[in-house]
Design a binder for these strands. Structure first.
Lengths: 351, 351
DNA sequence: ACAATTTTTGACAAGGTTGTCAATTCTTGA
DNA sequence: TCAAGAATTGACAACCTTGTCAAAAATTGT
């Protein structure tokens, strides 16, 4: 009953009364709209502060047709990659007053536009997010971007994306350069027969990493032996299979570059089982610097992606685009730094 | 322009007109309130169906003072445990028309009630969730439960919890029995000297698993040698350290039960480095059946927790409690089944 | 100093739902 | 058949914010 003890929080009306202005003026000040005297601005801000005013999201959404929600869309698997990006995104949202919710979509690959549309509509019509963060493998699916655009939802994509499609917002690292860095590290150590384990064909990063690999090999005056290029799906098992294949070869490689850490760990596991010493007999490099890189023995040499930052930056770009006056189509591409982490799975090739 | 092409979706008013009833009646039908003739119910449902009506979350929230949001609160680390539960929860929310958002809280251990309160208020006042899912290590913090209760937010806790505090909603597995199962598996194989790696002291599960271990040892007529009980923090490094300790002993154990998979993997790593054969020289069991259990070699014998189901069930309990008429204090405890997964890290003790 | 213009301010409606309460219809008993 | 009571239905307000538009105040030009 006593003042300040009321359970319900202050409303705009209360702030207006305390500041001696109209409700609308309070609204203007709090939303940083123009056309208010500096003097009143101060008063309103003070009043809001004093009353510990917090705007009602539901009222804002209802009237303003904005949800202050951002949706992170990914497929079901809870990989370290998705997880780390997600955490970065959550932090950024907390900071900026948005809410991040997670949406899981069954694999949409190869679905028609109509099917994709209905999947998203089913997911989002209860509460339409202001923006969507699209992770691999959806980031590169132009149909999905199209559907979301059509629904009036701003999109930011994380990860490498085909150059062909209209760009929009994009946050990534330079996978191409990172692959070159890996090969250079290996060739500097003296390796000449270098194997490669590819990632899922439906993910752009898999292709980019492979082409970086090829270019760097060529630049080093080496040939890419197709016998030493194995398919994979970014999972441990594929790495293991590739490892078994390599070790069974008459002339095995002296180094293997796997397109991600899970697969690199698989290659190492195959070596461990067969008594092949890493890195003495075979050097191995991964990509991502996932948890497993320091959970395995020996520790994995790999490329560190700033996953956390990628997620955070994606959110910042998205929210920035809401407030900027530039049109929806404004393309913006952000490239974050990667880093080659040299640990214990790489060394000189055997004599 | 043509009928059905309108961009904005149907509102309650439209449904009411089509069904020839008042808006309020539509509301009643759609919310399953009593006092409506069956005949009208049908009509309304048909109309809603035909118009593809979806209620506006913001309007509902504004008027009804419910957000249809559920918050999953955990600390920063993106462990497999948190991740898997989260995925289960997201699925359940999608199914039930709620939105799951993630909140990350810096470590709140040892903070005062005032500090905890302000952390949550800062986090949640922009949009107060209808319920909160509390994961370890927060699940067992009674101060947090208290603060949330005071804020009028329903809570469901996942994981083992002290019996002392007022219960509320709780979803867990029987960690105690699971530990007994592990020990029984080991003693059945003939092990007598069994080591144990404990989990973080601030997590209830660590204590429960340890006491299950002790009881089962006693039941098998074995003594718990304190030399063979090592501390840990549920992380790989602690398991590794414990492994190094065990292997350096004059009389090492023939089996080790680690309180989670990460630590078990650490013990295995220590063995691998030292040329100790698993399971020939040392049997090792983990807990969780995390990803790493099948990413390591040999594959890890462990307890499978139905993490996905725990998350989903937590959501179901929470939402169920909103709709049920029973009071907030209604305690409900759900215990899901665990399973001992016997893989390749356990075998008979060496002669 | 006054009209014309620009800037600042506020009254009011609207957004889509649910709670309240009064009006209507139906049921029951005499 | 009619009164009393119960069940059903609907009109209207309320939730809290933002957009519209007109009114008021300040500024400019002559």
């Amino acid at each position: 009953m006593a003042r300040g003890t009321g359970t319900s929080s202050a409303k705009m009306k209360d702030v207006a009364e305390r500041a001696g202005v109209s409700i609308k003026t309070v609204s203007r000040v709090l939303n940083n709209e123009p056309h208010v005297q500096e003097k009143l601005r101060q008063k309103v801000r003070e009043a809001a502060e004093a009353l510990d005013y917090v705007p009602s999201q539901s009222a804002r959404s209802l009237r303003g047709n904005r949800s202050y929600d951002i949706n992170l869309v990914c497929h079901v698997a809870g990989s370290n990659y998705v997880n780390s990006i997600q955490f970065g995104a959550v932090f950024a949202c907390q900071e900026l007053g948005y809410q991040l919710s997670i949406s899981l979509l069954e694999n949409l690959g190869g679905k028609s536009i109509a099917e994709i549309r209905s999947a998203f509509e089913g997911l989002m019509r209860r509460r339409k997010p202001d923006g969507v963060v699209l992770l691999a493998p959806y980031a590169n699916d132009e149909k999905i971007g199209f559907v979301l655009n059509e629904m009036g939802i701003q999109v930011v994509r994380v990860g490498p994306v085909d150059g062909t499609q209209n760009q929009g917002l994009l946050v990534e690292i330079d996978d191409y350069q990172a692959s070159i860095d890996v090969v250079r590290h290996l060739t500097n150590l003296g390796h000449k027969r270098i194997g490669f384990v590819r990632g899922s064909q439906d993910q752009r990063s898999a292709h980019v990493r492979y082409s970086g690999f090829c270019v760097a090999m060529e630049a080093a005056g080496l040939v890419v032996d197709q016998e030493l290029v194995r398919p994979g799906a970014f999972d441990f098992a594929a790495g293991y299979d590739a490892g078994v294949h390599f070790l069974g070869l008459k002339q095995p490689p002296t180094a293997v570059f796997a397109s991600n850490d899970d697969m690199a760990a698989g290659v190492v596991a195959a070596c461990t089982e067969r008594g092949v010493k890493v890195p003495d007999d075979l050097s191995i490099v991964g990509f991502d610097d996932a948890e497993i890189a320091t959970r395995m023995r020996p520790f994995l040499t790999t490329i560190r992606q700033p996953l956390h930052d990628l997620g955070a930056r994606a959110i910042h770009e998205l929210i920035g685009s809401f407030n900027s006056s530039t049109s929806k189509n404004s393309a913006h591409r952000v490239v974050l730094d990667h880093e080659l982490i040299i640990r214990d799975t790489t060394g000189s090739p055997p004599k």
